[in-house]
Amino acid sequence: MSALASHFSYAVTIFLLVAGLFIIIARGNLIKKMVGLSIFQTSVFLLYIVPGKLVGGTAPIVAPGFQVYSNPLPHVLILTAIVVGVATLALGLALAVRVHEAYGTIEEDEILERDAAS
């Protein structure tokens, strides 16, 4: 139990990672799949950001009286990763719109049915 408490952030990360992956696999709706993918990617943001924060650490600005600073690099990296995630989500949703125009549905099994029929 104490192991879970001390690794709480990792437990959340892993839960989000697996939950996101599960949604991608288990849901046939193209929008829901994108939701899963977003959760999946968000879990990684946590993985990076949490270790960057030190208990009692401040923003990394040199000032008298402060000795412990948080590491800013993971945050900067994740800023980039968030942008990538947003771009992926936008493109995925745009594709879902185009699929809806072409097929009249965004359910994966119905799309496969319509392809098999044509």
């Binding site: 993918l37 990684v44 993985l47 493109l91 995925g92 594709l95 699929v99 392809d115």
Partner: peptide, 24 residues
């Protein structure tokens, strides 16, 4: 072909999972 859209979407899902694994 309209199947290009579905192919692209599937590649997006698989590719993003792959890329996220690489980031992890």
């Amino acid at each position: 072909d309209r199947r290009a859209l579905v192919a692209s979407y599937q590649y997006l899902i698989m590719g993003s999972i792959g890329a996220t694994f690489i980031v992890v």
